[in-house]
Design a protein around this nucleic acid. Structure first.
Lengths: 136, 136
DNA sequence: GTTTAGTGGTCTCAAAAAGAGACCAGCACT
DNA sequence: AGTGCTGGTCTCTTTTTGAGACCACTAAAC
């Protein structure tokens, strides 16, 4: 009897601890990270951190992005405030994309991660190869 | 005549500058970043940075991940050397996931980015709202 | 004057990735 | 005998992505 109640209590404690303490479902950071996390987002931010680029330049700079995803990723980055889009009335009209202050601010920590990747990409590739060799 | 040749040369210069100087196609950093960039990867690394967790615990911790993607993301993280997987011969067998040294090393810059997101998520959300209001 | 190329996109259709949920064996507790 | 928990896998559907055609306009080449 007592043990039954105690078990139930213990389970509720654990549940509360989990849902209150460290539930990532409603974490406000998640959707921000998602915006940066897209397959092409960080790459384009990296490019624009160097200098502003035009649409076609970005397309040539990242040859394996489809025009469709380039449009959409730039749109999303603009929506989240990282990227500024400016149309120049040339003929034909040209469009320049550049980082905003928010974008440059975000690039600072992103750059840390990129640097880590530069320093450790051989370690990661070695781990991959070793894993594939044993676990196939 | 001369101008024609000059134009061609100039174009080739520009092309070479682009393809040699800053072509991201064969950048060794890209696939490493991709591994961290997955929708669930950073979230799981964040969780495991706190302490090791078992499969079911992670599933409850991140309620909106499907069991399928949890399995696969953990597999990928293990393959890249960020996560260690250990099976304990309990009944039924339990599986514990923990960060490796490489994983902890990678978490340091990742944490910088997460901190940025914590500090600026309201700015990003405001930008989004403003953008949607005007551009819908 | 007529082809040719470049501008920044959008549209459609196929392929890949992700989500939802059933199912599994084995054991403990009831 | 039924229920639940373990860590997954399998199948089916929906969403996301990729490949490529198309578009109007213009400038320059031929």
């Amino acid at each position: 009897m007592d043990s039954k109640i105690f078990n139930l209590k213990a389970k509720l404690e654990v549940y509360k601890a989990m849902t209150n303490g460290a539930n990532f479902a409603d974490c406000p950071v998640r959707d921000v990270i998602q915006g940066i996390n897209g397959k092409w987002s960080s790459l384009l931010v990296m490019a624009l951190a160097e200098k502003p680029y035009r649409f076609g330049e970005l397309r040539r700079l990242v040859p394996d992005i489809s025009q469709r995803m380039l449009t959409q990723t730039l749109y999303d980055l603009q929506r989240d405030g990282y990227v500024h889009r400016e149309v120049f009335p040339t003929k034909p009209p040209s469009v320049e994309y550049s980082l905003t202050d928010l974008g440059r601010s975000m690039f600072l920590p992103l750059q840390q991660l990129i640097q880590w990747a530069e320093l450790n990409h051989d370690v990661v590739r070695a781990a991959r190869a070793a894993f594939d060799a044993t676990q196939g």
